[in-house]
Write a protein that binds this DNA or RNA. Structure first.
Lengths: 217, 217
DNA sequence: TCTATTCGCTACAGGTCGTAGCGTATCTGG
DNA sequence: CCAGATACGCTACGACCTGTAGCGAATAGA
């Protein structure tokens, strides 16, 4: 109902930009609100999280929330997106090691108790709100896809892979690889609720990299 | 808050059993309510679905809903549980064809708009409710895992695969394969919201079955 | 017929979202 | 140093939704 036309700001989560004249917004309030949102989300889930509760927990008036985020949806997405800020890609010398490292990092984030309820709640809302889904893609999914892209670039530089001739086909292949990696971890941790162990990671990378299913190779 | 101790009834969704004396409950009302729930879920999503709206749509009083289901959550779970009943495994002559068929079936179910909102909402609730997560595993996840199991058995019978010597390792491998297949489709359709096309399915099965990543084969 | 149960209807309490208005606090430009 | 502009906390509010209660009427078995 109240579309934000502004392109999303990565480092500064607040929405409506401050004018240069009056009292500036409190950055500490921003952080306190996001922290309180993550905590409440972990404890109560999407349905149990209320804006009033977040405001009290952050030591802030409820109206302050609505001055910065137009709705509960936007606030929760920003709070969840910050969970994935630390992800980085390594260059461990082999494609399998790199993949296993990315999977382990992703799994570590999803293992945090606040991540599971929060992510699923946000995904669920996104299924009926295309704008929210777009924001999920930009803030959560795309940064992770970059990791796969970089990992494959490393492997390419090491000569482990040969590049796809067609760039379109290459992009498609990266999409499928990313869907597979992200989806497997999400399914195991978010849907089934079982841990991603080193043993599972090894089996998964074997499945991806070795002709483990086809024995005729 | 109000746990139903009754073991879930598949064919008859109503909860509190009718006594043998008075006016019996209308079976048509049950069906109308479930249908209306699925339709409303498709149009409005979990958050937009209201019990009052479902009642009007079903031509039923709101109190009638609460006489049969203790809460909105239970009603939606029942309404969506039947979506996965039709899944079956084929024997199309090759492992790749079988996998592609399973993926296509799974994608077809997840393509229905009511499935996306409902499934994600139920998953989200399951992340904080171990009992609900257990029901999800039994009613949704495990039946799908059987498909992978059967497909691999077919491939084994055709000689495309050699069995794992250790049965424990074999079970682990099946788990990983299932996590990978289910997760990839779920991620693409539920999280990102992009369609699973035949082209994507082909690329995915290639990734699983052929040494597509490692070019040194 | 008698009795138990369901049905639709209306009303209601409790809670939440998001907004409006007010006085006060804080920062910047002149 | 002062005036304008903005953020802040507070209270109140309308609209909506969940889930319950009570009422007459309808529908079945005994």
């Amino acid at each position: 109902m109240a579309p934000t036309q502004q392109p999303a700001q990565s480092p500064v989560p607040s929405r409506v930009p401050s004018r240069t004249k009056g009292r500036p917004r409190s950055a500490a309030a921003d952080q306190a609100i996001l922290d309180a949102t993550r905590e409440a989300l972990a404890e109560l889930g999407w349905g149990g999280l209320t804006m009033g509760h977040v405001a009290i927990r952050a030591g802030v008036a409820k109206t302050t929330l609505y001055r910065r985020w137009p709705s509960k949806n936007e606030l929760v997405v920003d709070a969840v997106a910050s969970l994935f800020d630390e992800l980085a890609v390594a260059d461990l010398g082999s494609l399998q090691a790199d993949i296993e490292d990315v999977v382990a990092q992703f799994a570590a984030v999803l293992a945090r108790p606040e991540s599971q309820a929060a992510l699923l709640a946000v995904f669920a809302e996104g299924s009926r709100d295309p704008q929210l889904r777009q924001r999920i893609r930009e803030h959560i999914v795309d940064p992770q896809k970059v990791l796969v892209h970089q990992g494959l670039a490393h492997a390419l530089a090491r000569g482990e892979l040969t590049a796809e001739a067609d760039p379109v086909a290459g992009a498609e292949q990266i999409d499928v690889i990313f869907d597979t990696i992200a989806g497997a971890v999400e399914h195991r941790m978010l849907v089934i609720g079982e841990p991603v162990t080193p043993r599972w990671i090894r089996r998964f990378s074997d499945l991806l990299l070795n002709p483990g299913l086809y024995q005729s190779c």
